[in-house]
């Protein structure tokens, strides 16, 4: 990804992230977060993670944030007014945040000494094809031969071939959360023993 795009999307992600925190109106916060997530998705694309980037837009920016907005509208939550911010908390938050970023900056400055390569390594589909050998499914094989990164296909292979068990766990988790949402959001039923 050209550097200018990186800086652009990183700025979008972070600036709108700041908006989430500082805006007093929850609707603004939610919308800012959605934009921030779109910026993040762009960063994912820059990292050649096309599938993850798409999912980020679909699930986060699409579904999750809409859910947030929906709830905010439903409950009709007004902007906070008249409250003076808790300056101690603001100060603590800034200190914690700055320290964290500094910490990470210090750590990443040591990378070159270790084995982590920080320079972008070009992807080499041909080499990958050789390494995968017969394990590669036909579709993946074709794409790799053509020199394209079959990101979504590789994710599919990964999820269904290697992480099937975890996919099942996640399925169970989604079921539990469905049950949970039903249980937690049903209205009080005054007639005893009534069905849901």
């Amino acid at each position: 990804m050209p550097a200018v795009f990186f800086y652009l999307f990183a700025a979008v992600t972070l600036l709108f992230g700041v908006m989430v925190i500082v805006s007093k109106n929850p609707v603004t916060s939610a919308l800012s977060l959605a934009v921030s997530f779109v910026g993040l998705a762009a960063l994912f694309l820059g990292l050649d993670a096309y599938f993850i980037g798409t999912v980020q837009v679909l699930v986060y920016a699409g579904a999750v944030m809409v859910l947030f907005l929906f709830i905010i509208m439903l409950l009709d939550i007004k902007a906070e007014t008249g409250k003076t911010p808790n300056y101690a908390a603001v100060f603590a938050a800034i200190v914690v945040g700055v320290l964290l970023v500094l910490q990470v900056a210090t750590i990443v400055s040591t990378f070159e000494k270790g084995k982590l390569t920080t320079l972008e390594v070009p992807l080499r589909p041909k080499e990958a094809l050789a390494a995968m050998g017969k394990n590669a499914l036909p579709g993946i094989q074709r794409d790799l031969e053509a020199g394209i990164l079959p990101d979504t296909k590789l994710m599919g292979l990964q999820l269904y071939h290697h992480y099937g068990f975890h996919l099942q766990i996640i399925g169970l988790l989604l079921l539990v959360s469905t049950v949970g949402v039903v249980v937690l959001s049903k209205r009080e039923n005054r007639t005893e023993g009534g069905a849901k």
Partner: peptide, 23 residues
């Protein structure tokens, strides 16, 4: 990954269980 997914299964279930008696 297994740790994370299974742990979240437990945690999300506990969110529901803890808030269950919401009266």
């Amino acid at each position: 990954i297994t740790v994370f997914t299974a742990l979240e299964l437990v945690t999300v279930s506990f969110y529901v269980l803890v808030a269950y008696t919401r009266k």
